[in-house]
Simulated scan of single mutants.
Amino acid sequence: MNNEPQSRLFFALGCPSALRKTISQWRSSLGLRTGRPVPTANFHLTLLFLGAVNTARIADICTVASNVKTPGKRITLALDRLEVWRKSKVLVLMPDDAPAELMRFAYALEQAMLPFVHNPEQKEFRPHLTLSRDYLSQVPEAGSPPEFFLRADRFALYESHKGQYRMIAEWPLVESES
C-alpha cells in the first residue's frame, strides 16, 4: 500500500465563464428529473484523466506536459450532440465531429503521460462535457438543439478534491509571437 500523499489529476480544456453560463441555462431548459447536475463552475472538456498520482510527481508531470507537441493553433470544438453514456451513467455534450488537431493532441498527451499512469485503461478518447452524473434516463428532448462552440487556446492540469476542481498549471496551445 502506498502511503505517499495522492492527488486526483486530469488534463482539460477550460470552459470560459460566458459559455458555462449559456450551457447551464440550456441544460436547465431540458427539465432534467434524474441525475446530479455537474456544477456550472466545473464545466470542462477532459483531455486525459490521470487518476490518483503521488503528489511528489506533479512537478514531473508539469515538466513533461510543457513539452507535449501542441496543435500550434486555437482549438475550436462544436458541442452539438447530446448523449447518454449508459455505462458511465452520464449525460454529455459532445461534438458530432471532433477536430483532428484535438484528437492528435489528446493522443500525444496520453502517450507523454504513460509513465505517470499506474493502470492505463485502453479507453478511446471521446471529447465531451459532462452535464449530469448518475443519469439513468433517456436522452432528453431539447427545445433547441445544442449548438455551443468551445474555443481553447490553453490546456491545463487540474486537481479534483471533494467535487471541487483546482487548476494546478496551464500551458498555451499556441506559441506566443515574440
Rank of each mutant, 00 (worst) to 15 (best):
S29W: 07
L13Y: 07
A65S: 14
G14F: 01
L136M: 01
A100H: 12
T46Q: 01
E110N: 11
F148M: 05
E141S: 09
L82G: 08
F116S: 05
P140G: 04
T22G: 04
F125W: 05
I23K: 05
R133I: 10
D153M: 04
E101N: 14
P145D: 07
N119H: 15
C62H: 00
A59T: 14
A106F: 06
M113P: 05
A12P: 04
E121W: 03
K89T: 08
A78G: 08
I61L: 11
A98L: 08
R151D: 12
P16A: 09
K73A: 09
R133K: 13
P140C: 06
L77D: 03
A56L: 14
Y107I: 05
K87E: 11
D80V: 08
A52C: 10
L136V: 03
R57K: 15
S137L: 10
C62N: 12
V64W: 00
A142L: 09
T40M: 15
T40W: 12
L48G: 01
I61V: 15
L114T: 13
V68A: 07
P146V: 06
A152S: 15
T76H: 09
L93M: 05
F125D: 05
T46P: 02
E83K: 15
R133D: 09
S28F: 02
R81A: 13
D60T: 06
S28N: 11
V90Q: 02
E110P: 01
R104P: 00
P16E: 12
V92P: 01
E124M: 12
Q25M: 09
N42H: 09
L114Y: 07
T34I: 07
K89N: 11
N42K: 10
L45G: 02
S24A: 15
A156H: 01
L79H: 09
R151V: 14
D96S: 15
R57V: 11
V139D: 03
F105R: 03
A52I: 09
L32D: 06
Y135N: 02
I58K: 10
S137F: 07
A156Q: 09
L150G: 08
L48W: 01
D97F: 11
F149N: 12
F125R: 04
S66C: 04
Y135G: 05
P145E: 10
N119T: 12
A12I: 06
I23V: 15
T130F: 03
P37N: 15
V117G: 03
R126Q: 10
I23N: 07
G51D: 04
L79W: 08
V92W: 00
P145M: 06
L50P: 03
T46E: 02
P16I: 08
V53N: 08
A59S: 13
P71S: 06
L131R: 05
R151E: 13
E141P: 01
R20I: 06
S132F: 06
E83F: 10
P39C: 11
A156S: 14
D97P: 01
S28L: 11
P146M: 05
H128L: 08
K87P: 00
D97N: 15
V64N: 03
E141Y: 10
L77C: 15
P95H: 10
K89P: 02
F105H: 05
L82Y: 08
I61F: 06
L131S: 02
K89R: 15
E110A: 01
L114M: 15
A56I: 14
L136F: 00
R154W: 07
L150M: 03
K69M: 12
A18T: 14
R154P: 00
E141M: 06
T40V: 15
E101G: 05
F125P: 06
V139Y: 01
